[in-house]
Amino acid sequence: MVEIEINGESVVLPGPVQKIVEINELVVVLFRPPPGEISERNIRAYDRSGTKQWSIEPATMPTGESYRYTGLRIEDGELWAYNWKGGDYRIDPFTGEIEDSELAK
Score class of each variant (00 low, 15 high):
residue 82 Y to I: 04
residue 38 I to Q: 10
residue 65 E to A: 14
residue 8 G to E: 05
residue 93 P to Y: 02
residue 89 Y to F: 13
residue 105 K to W: 12
residue 53 Q to V: 13
residue 27 V to Q: 03
residue 61 M to Q: 08
residue 14 P to W: 10
residue 33 P to M: 12
residue 70 T to I: 08
residue 102 E to Q: 12
residue 58 P to R: 11
residue 4 I to V: 13
residue 73 R to G: 08
residue 104 A to P: 02
residue 57 E to T: 11
residue 84 W to H: 07
residue 3 E to L: 12
residue 48 R to I: 06
residue 97 E to F: 05
residue 105 K to N: 08
residue 19 K to P: 05
residue 24 N to A: 12
residue 66 S to T: 08
residue 85 K to A: 04
residue 105 K to L: 10
residue 92 D to C: 07
residue 100 D to V: 02
residue 87 G to Q: 02
residue 9 E to W: 12
residue 93 P to W: 00
residue 101 S to Y: 04
residue 78 E to W: 07
residue 32 R to C: 10
residue 14 P to A: 11
residue 20 I to P: 01
residue 97 E to M: 04
residue 91 I to L: 04
residue 61 M to Y: 10
residue 100 D to S: 07
residue 66 S to P: 00
residue 50 G to F: 05
residue 43 I to K: 06
residue 41 R to D: 04
residue 90 R to Q: 11
residue 37 E to M: 15
residue 25 E to D: 09
residue 37 E to C: 14
residue 104 A to K: 15
residue 61 M to P: 01
residue 82 Y to A: 06
residue 82 Y to E: 05
residue 89 Y to G: 03
residue 35 P to R: 15
residue 93 P to H: 01
residue 71 G to R: 09
residue 56 I to V: 14
residue 70 T to W: 00
residue 99 E to W: 04
residue 96 G to Y: 02
residue 62 P to A: 07
residue 22 E to R: 15
residue 65 E to H: 09
residue 9 E to H: 15
residue 16 P to W: 06
residue 42 N to Y: 10
residue 51 T to Q: 13
residue 82 Y to P: 01
residue 40 E to F: 13
residue 12 V to L: 10
residue 67 Y to H: 14
residue 42 N to C: 11
residue 70 T to Y: 03
residue 70 T to P: 02
residue 8 G to T: 12
residue 59 A to Q: 03
residue 36 G to P: 09
residue 61 M to R: 08
residue 68 R to D: 03
residue 38 I to K: 13
residue 2 V to K: 15
residue 78 E to I: 04
residue 103 L to K: 09
residue 85 K to H: 06
residue 46 Y to K: 09
residue 45 A to P: 06
residue 25 E to A: 11
residue 82 Y to W: 07
residue 28 V to Y: 02
